[in-house]
Computed example of a mutant assay.
Amino acid sequence: MNATLKTFKIISFLEAISFLVLLGIAMPLKYIWELPQMVQVVGMAHGVLFLLYIAGAVYVSQILQWSTKTLLIVLACSVIPFGPFYAERKYLP
């Protein structure tokens, strides 16, 4: 179980960072300076990490026996900037 939680924490951290980089660096580069290349790279990485986060949250919810409400909160945190940091601190041991 510890390895599973550690893996999910790493995925959660990376997903949060990729989302912030996408919103804070890649999107301005695309729309202000017309450089879409970074959105393609960071966007793909974020997409993969997002899917891993969702799958990991569902798996961890079964291990930790989260209520449906807790799972939905953790899933909602994946679409809010800095949300995964909150979810990790609040709901993971």
Rank of each mutant, 00 (worst) to 15 (best):
V39F: 07
V39E: 08
Q40W: 10
Q40P: 07
Q40C: 07
V41K: 13
V41L: 15
V42F: 09
V42K: 02
V42M: 08
V42T: 06
G43K: 04
G43I: 04
G43T: 04
M44G: 12
M44A: 13
M44S: 14
A45R: 05
A45F: 12
A45S: 12
A45E: 06
A45Q: 03
H46P: 01
H46E: 00
H46F: 01
G47L: 14
G47N: 12
G47I: 12
V48A: 14
L49Q: 08
L49Y: 08
L49C: 05
F50I: 06
F50T: 01
F50Q: 03
F50L: 13
L51W: 09
L52R: 08
L52I: 12
L52V: 11
L52Y: 05
Y53W: 06
Y53E: 14
Y53A: 11
I54R: 09
I54Q: 10
I54W: 05
A55F: 15
A57W: 02
A57E: 06
A57D: 08
A57R: 02
V58H: 10
V58Y: 12
V58I: 14
Y59G: 04
S61G: 15
S61P: 04
Q62I: 05
Q62H: 11
I63E: 01
I63F: 00
I63H: 03
Q65R: 15
Q65N: 14
W66D: 07
W66G: 10
S67M: 01
S67Q: 03
S67L: 06
T68K: 15
T68V: 11
T68E: 08
K69R: 12
K69P: 09
K69I: 15
K69L: 14
T70K: 15
T70N: 08
L71R: 09
L72C: 11
L72I: 14
L72E: 03
I73Y: 07
I73M: 10
I73R: 08
I73W: 11
V74Q: 01
V74A: 01
A76S: 14
C77P: 03
S78W: 01
S78I: 02
S78C: 06
